[in-house]
């Protein structure tokens, strides 16, 4: 196994555990919200906000993980009809598009969003955490997606050389 493959697998393993833990916390948080209202007769203000922020992190980190696994929903009715060579070219083109979106919107746009909210000291309503931390998942995942795209592109090239 090549070094880049090792790192790729390691990063995926870490991502998997992140997703599992966030999901488990999400379940516990909302269960706690329901039971605290019925059993303790008391509502806490932070449970809802924690759940919403966890969902954002789980979704956008999950999107990066889907990129690693190439499991996003896509339409292959034209792709299926292509020749092997064209498929290879298209596969690279797809990764280039994804790379550019991740760079321009998620990393650059996302970093500006994080910068703006941190600079202006915006705090969340009840947990009082800086909203910039919530938005930080966007540039973070964007960076991962860019790396995955490069990894996939290099994979297409090395496969070509092998065959």
């Amino acid at each position: 196994m090549s070094k880049s493959e090792l790192i790729f697998n390691k990063v995926n393993k870490i991502l998997e555990w992140f997703l599992i833990i966030i999901f488990a916390l999400l379940v516990l948080d909302v269960l706690f919200q329901v039971f605290s209202r019925y059993l303790l007769g008391q509502s806490f203000t932070w449970t809802e906000e924690f759940a919403r922020f966890s969902l954002i992190w789980m979704t956008i980190l999950g999107a990066a993980y889907l990129n690693a696994k190439k499991e996003h929903l896509s339409m292959d009715f034209l792709y299926d009809k292509m020749s092997v060579a064209n498929k290879r070219k298209t596969a690279i083109l797809i990764e280039v598009f994804i790379f550019l979106f991740a760079l321009i919107v998620m990393v650059i746009g996302g970093l500006n969003l994080v910068y703006t909210t941190l600079h202006l000291e915006q705090l969340s309503g009840t947990l009082r955490i800086p909203l910039g931390y919530v938005y930080a998942v966007l540039p973070f995942s964007g960076f991962l997606i860019m790396c995955f795209s490069i990894y996939h592109i290099s994979g297409v090239y090395s496969n070509k050389n092998k065959s």
Partner: peptide
């Protein structure tokens, strides 16, 4: 869902539910 509103209803004896 803000602390002031919750405190107010709870202080008056109600059960504030955001």
């Amino acid at each position: 869902n803000n602390q002031m509103a919750i405190n107010m209803v709870n202080t008056m004896g109600g059960d504030a539910t955001p």
